[in-house]
Design a protein around this nucleic acid. Structure first.
Length: 640
DNA sequence: GGGAGAGACGTTTTT
DNA sequence: CGTCTCTCCC
């Protein structure tokens, strides 16, 4: 198929795909067809004989990357199968792992997962004064990097921070590891310090999606990678919802000033939502002050859709109402996968999930922890890592500490000290301790733990050639808590022949889980997760003051409180614009909110209320509801 | 090192 | 209220 087949030559999608400008900015509102335009652009590049490996298409989340990748595969253009859709982190990890980069870096791009990070906290907290403090400092360190442009993190500021940074870095250098928040900044630093490096010219074309969600460091990384390439950034500052991870939405606004010659496009025709929803979304977002005024344009042919705003007595009845409504829809022939329920609170998600199950609706909550994230699964997986690489210091550190409150930090500190003085690796030191050729005080429990690990490793080592047995041993069928991991291993094993490949296949599955192409359940998820999705039936629950928006603590500076309110408004804007008008369904949006809830619960959730009747706090509807404007239907009382 | 009891928290993400 | 985390003490 030719890249411009069926494209209106006066349309903005055509222009975006066709432009030869080397700096392109696209501001694309929700549902305006930016992926479509991007796809056509890539198709054009391939048809013009640009090598697929010289095209970089990056996004922020894995889901979006996977999506992009799948879309690109569908292009019927030679070479498209070689196109990657990737996250910036994934790309950064791959670049940092290159031999020459590693050498110049002085750090190892081996990021810590949550669990491994716990071990790290236990090791460094005693030196820095408490775990809480330590976590806060790590967060500050990562945030400083996120806001940096790759020189130095702008941290430490105080002596205390200085001392802390040294301890933190020493830990990571010793363990040959990295914080996730360091991955991009180190890439930036590498690119900056090595202007002659090949990485600067690796790509001829760079497409960066969801640009408003990237932080300063990430935006800087992209700027370096695209310095000698054509670049097209795409985003929408009205959908910026990641300020908590230091996203820098000003970046997309300022981009045009920085690149004065850039080709600038705006996609405003909403190809997704019914007209009522578009009008409501426009009205809502116009209340934000910190934005360039723009309007999403409705397409009459989409129809008006159906919008209901429903107040229920309390959260339980709200959940019940949603359950009933969903059930009705399913009975009328709607597929469960066509329904999404958006809630901002885990607790509410649980209540709604229960209510859905109660009426036998197949449902899945995206809040629930995957089995792969449990202690037990992590332990097995760490064992696997260590089996393949005895010098994976983080895995060993983690395993030596598990089943102990403090991760056996005091004992481990002695071993580490020995290693630093002698040059032994931790594994070597532990072997010597176990053999009795090295003696250290107060490390008995550590040795016992190591012996257990060592025994398991020896047993496993004999099996690395026999996948079936290896899996049986690592992920036994009779341990219920790891069935998911076992299944993963079994399915991965069918495609590989040795343990290393099995590990990488599993790792990939775990870190980049295949998004199942067909969903079979009603999905209950956060507004954040819903970004990138669209659905003919969208429920947004718990729209009360205190939840959406969250109310800032007393004493929060006004600037910060205002910014938080605007971000919450964008979040709601994202939620509302998930609704898709289609051929079979007009596109339905159900916004619900409880009238009251137990005062105790409201207090816990930080929901403000002025009076309480018989212990029931009387709640205020979200201010966003009135901001939806005159096109929004009048709220009604729901019946169950 | 482990258990009891106090205390905090209750959102959102990247390998 | 329920869960997880931290601290203290033996």
């Amino acid at each position: 198929m030719a890249w411009d087949e069926g494209l209106d030559k006066d349309g903005v999608a055509y222009k975006i795909a066709a432009t030869e400008a080397d700096r392109v900015r696209v501001i694309a509102g929700p549902g305006t067809g930016k992926s479509y335009a991007m796809k056509r652009r890539v198709a054009r590049l391939l048809e013009e004989q640009v090598e697929p490996e010289n095209v970089l298409a990056v996004t922020f989340t894995r889901v979006a990357a996977e999506d992009l990748h799948r879309e690109l595969q569908k292009l019927e253009v030679p070479g498209c199968e070689k196109l990657e859709g990737q996250t910036l982190h994934g790309l950064a990890m791959r670049i940092l792992a290159r031999e020459h980069v590693l050498n110049s870096l002085g750090r190892t791009p081996r990021p810590l997962n949550n669990f491994e990070q716990k071990a790290m906290y236990c090791d460094i907290a005693p030196v820095t004064g408490g775990k809480k403090e330590c976590k806060a400092l790590v967060e500050a360190y990562e945030a400083a990097w996120a806001r940096s442009q790759g020189d130095e993190p702008g941290f430490p500021a105080t002596n205390k921070e200085k001392a802390f940074q040294k301890i933190l870095l020493d830990w990571h250098i010793f363990h040959k590891s990295m914080l996730i928040g360091e991955v991009i900044p180190y890439l930036v630093r590498y690119l900056k310090d090595n202007p002659a490096a090949d990485e600067h010219t690796e790509f001829d074309h760079v497409l960066a999606d969801e640009y408003q969600d990237l932080n300063k460091a990430e935006q800087t990384a992209i700027a370096y990678l695209a310095e000698n390439a054509h670049i097209c950034i795409v985003g929408d500052d009205d959908q910026s919802i990641y300020s908590f991870k230091s996203a820098h939405p000003d970046g997309i606004r300022e981009w045009k000033d920085v690149h004065a010659e850039c080709a600038d496009f705006e996609m405003a025709d909403c190809q997704r939502c019914p007209t009522t929803v578009v009008a409501m979304a426009n009205s809502l977002i116009s209340h934000n002050k910190n934005r360039d005024p723009r309007e999403l344009k409705p397409i009459e042919a989409k129809g008006e859709g159906e919008v209901q705003i429903v107040q229920l007595t309390n959260p339980a009845i709200e959940a019940k109402w949603i359950g009933k409504k969903v059930k009705e829809l399913l009975d009328a022939g709607v597929q469960p996968s066509e329904i999404i329920v958006l809630v901002q609170r885990k607790r509410a998600a649980r209540v709604i999930l229960k209510a859905l199950k109660a009426v036998e609706v197949p449902a899945k909550s995206y809040y629930e922890e995957s089995q792969l994230e449990t202690d037990e699964a992590q332990k097995r997986f760490a064992m696997f890592k260590l089996l393949l690489d005895k010098e994976d210091r983080v895995a060993l550190r983690y395993l030596l500490g598990i089943d102990s409150n403090d991760f056996r930090a005091p004992a481990y500190a002695r071993v580490r000290e020995h290693c630093e003085n002698s040059g032994d690796t931790p594994f070597q030191a532990m072997e010597k301790l176990a053999a009795g050729t090295l003696e250290l005080p107060h490390v008995k429990s550590l040795i016992e733990q190591f012996n257990a690990i060592g025994q398991a490793l020896t047993d496993l080592d004999l099996l690395t050639d026999d996948m079936g047995q290896l899996i049986d041993m690592l992920f036994p069928a009779d341990v219920e808590s790891i069935t998911e991991l076992r299944e993963l291993a079994l399915s991965a094993a069918s495609e590989v022949t040795d343990a290393h490949d099995l590990f990488s296949a599993m790792m990939k599955e775990i870190t980049q889980p295949d998004i199942p192409p067909e969903v079979k359940e009603v999905r209950v998820m956060s507004l954040h997760k819903s970004k990138g999705l669209s659905s003919p039936f969208v429920f947004i629950a718990q729209c009360v003051q205190g939840v959406l928006p969250q109310i800032s603590e007393k004493g929060t500076p006004k600037v910060i409180a205002d910014a938080a309110l605007e971000e919450a408004r964008r979040l709601f804007f994202v939620g509302v614009t998930r609704v898709k008008a289609g051929n079979c369904h007009p596109g339905s949006l159900y916004i619900t909110y409880p009238k009251e809830m137990l005062a105790g619960m409201a207090k816990q959730l930080g929901i403000p209320f002025t009076k309480s009747n018989y212990g029931q706090a009387q709640l205020s509807p979200s201010i966003f509801l009135q901001e939806l404007g005159p096109s929004a239907p009048k709220p009604v009382a729901g019946k169950v």
